[in-house]
Structures are given as structure tokens and as C-alpha cells.
């Protein structure tokens, strides 16, 4: 029975022109064409989108949470990447 199951797809929707596609959820579909149509019917019933991406879930490669420390924490100490790190005297504008 279980081998008749359709593959799982991740759905990304662009809600309006100028914004990037955002992950909204997943669904089942036998092929890409069907996945796009199902995404339209499942995730844009209230005009939530103008463009759809679907990716078969097993094609998504993710970073592992146990590596989060080494992947993301080093960036925390690089405060100089942020504009608020720098002092700008009062009266200077447009910077």
C-alpha cells in the first residue's frame, strides 16, 4: 500500500511582485505539474500568491541542527558587519 504513496513536495510561494518565494508547507503529488496545481489549490485559495515553486522534499539538503554552533555562532562576534557598530556624530545625515 505504502509504495503507492505520492512523493512529498515542499511549496514556496511569492506573495507579490518584489518579494522572494517563501516556504509555506508541503503536499503530495505524483509529478511536478500536479504539484504546482495542488499547491495552487491548497496554498493560494485566498489569493496568497502570484508565483509557485515546488521542490521534491528529498531534494532539499539541510544543515544539521547539531552543527548550528559551529555554523552560525562565529558570525555573532563579527559585529563590525553591522552599521550600528560605528559611531556617527549627531548632525551627520544620509549615512
Amino acid at each position: 500500500m505504502a509504495n503507492n504513496e505520492w512523493p512529498l513536495w515542499e511549496v514556496f510561494i511569492r506573495s507579490k511582485q518584489g518579494l522572494s518565494h517563501k516556504h509555506v508547507g508541503s503536499l503530495r503529488a505524483a509529478d511536478a505539474e500536479m504539484a504546482v496545481e495542488n499547491a495552487r489549490d491548497v496554498y493560494t485559495r485566498r489569493s496568497e500568491g502570484i508565483s509557485i515553486w515546488v521542490v521534491e522534499s528529498n531534494n532539499v539538503h539541510a544543515s544539521h541542527p547539531t552543527e548550528a554552533d559551529s555554523l552560525f555562532e562565529p558570525a555573532h562576534s563579527k559585529v563590525y558587519r553591522h552599521p550600528t557598530f560605528y559611531d556617527v556624530p549627531d548632525g551627520i545625515e544620509h549615512m
Binding site: 503507492n4 504513496e5 505520492w6 505524483a30 509529478d31 500536479m34
Partner: peptide, 15 residues
């Protein structure tokens, strides 16, 4: 729906 889901899979595999 069993035969329908099966057919869609079979078609996708052929494609």
C-alpha cells in the same frame, strides 16, 4: 482512490 493514485504514479514513472 487507490487505482487513481497508482495510475498517477505509473504515469509519472513512464514520463
Amino acid at each position: 482512490g487507490e487505482w487513481v493514485r497508482e495510475a498517477a504514479n505509473a504515469y509519472a514513472a513512464k514520463q
